[in-house]
Amino acid sequence: MGRFLIRRLLGLIVALAVASVVIFLCLEVVPGDPAAYMLGVNARPDTLAALRAELGLDGSAVQRYFDWIGGMLRGDFGISYTYRTPVSGMIVDRMWVSLPLALYALGLSVAIAFPAGIWAASRRGSAADLGVMGVTQLGVAVPNFWFAMLMVLLFAIKLRWFPSGGFAGWDEGLFAGLKSLTLPAIALALPQASILTRVMRSSLLDTLGEDYIRTARAKGVSRRRAIWAHGLRNALIPVLTIIGLQFSFLLAGAIIIENVFYLPGLGRLVFQAISSRDLIVVESVVLLLVFAVIAVNFAVDMAYGLVDPRLRGRR
C-alpha cells in the first residue's frame, strides 16, 4: 500500500506541474490586453502604459510563471487585474456558491439514482424497469441549459415558486440559499441522475449474475435479500467512480447553468475573467479545478484500494 501511495502521489505532482505549464502557455498566447479592457476606448497610450506597469504586466514570461507558481504554493493566488482584490478571496467567495451547488446536485442525483436504479434492477424486464430506462434515456439526451430555461419559464415566471436566478446569500438563511440553488441543482442533476441510475442498474445486474450470488440464490436467499445483503456493496465500485467523476464535472461544468441563473459561481467567474482578460484569475481557477479533479480521482483510487486489495497493483 505504501509504495502504491507514493507512486500515485508522484504521478499527481507531475500531472499538476504539466497542467500548470499548459495553462500558463495557453494564456500567454491569448490575444487581448487587460489594461485596454479596463480603460476602454478613450484611453491614451501613456495611461495604458501606466496601468500595465501598475498591474505588473511587464516582465518576462518565465519570470511571471515562477512568480505565479511560487505564489500559488504559498497560498497567494495574486491580485485580480480587473477587480484589484486578492484572487484567493474571490475564489473562496465563489466556492460558497459552487461547492454547495455541486453537492446539492450530486445529492439529488444520488437520491434519485439509488432507488430508481435498484428498483429497476430488482424488477428487470418489467414495465417499471422499461419506464425507468426510458426516462433516463430522455434525461441523458436533454440539453440541460434548455431544460433550465424551460424550468425558469414555468417555475419562476409562471408559478413564481422559485426565484428566477441570482443567489440570496447564506446570510439570508439556509432556506433562502437552498431555494435559490434548487432550480439550478435540478437542471444539473437531471442528466447526472439519469447516467447514475443506468450505472447503478447495470452494475447491480452484473453483480447479481456473479457466481456467489447465484449460489446464494440457489440456497434459497430471496432476490430482494440477495440485492440488499450482497449485491449492493459490490455493485458500488463503478457507481463510486461515476460519482467521483460527476462531482468534479459539476464543480467546473456548471458554467452554462450558472449563466442561465446568473449565479456568482466559479464557472461564471472564469467566463467573465476570460472576456475581461483577467488572466491571473483564469490561470488560478483552472489550475485549482484541475487539481480538484486529480485529487478526487486520487481519492477514488484510494477508495478502490480499500474496497478491493486486488486493484492495488493495477493501474
Binding site: 504521478g11 507531475v14 500531472a15 504539466v18 497542467a19 499548459v22 495557453c26 494564456l27 498566447v29 491569448v30 490575444p31 487581448g32 468534479s248 464535472f249 464543480l251 467546473a252 461544468g253 458554467i255 452554462i256 464557472g267 472564469v270 467566463f271 476570460i274 472576456s275 483564469v282 483552472v286 479545478l289 484541475v290 479533479v293 486529480i294 480521482n297 493501474r315
Partner: peptide, 23 residues
C-alpha cells in the same frame, strides 16, 4: 499516453473550449 489521457480528462472541458475560442 495514459498519463496524457488522465491529464486531458482532468481539464474542465467546457472551460478549455471557451479558452480555445478566446484564443
Amino acid at each position: 499516453v495514459m498519463r496524457g489521457n488522465d491529464l486531458i480528462f482532468a481539464f474542465p472541458s467546457l472551460l478549455i473550449a471557451i479558452l480555445i475560442t478566446a484564443i
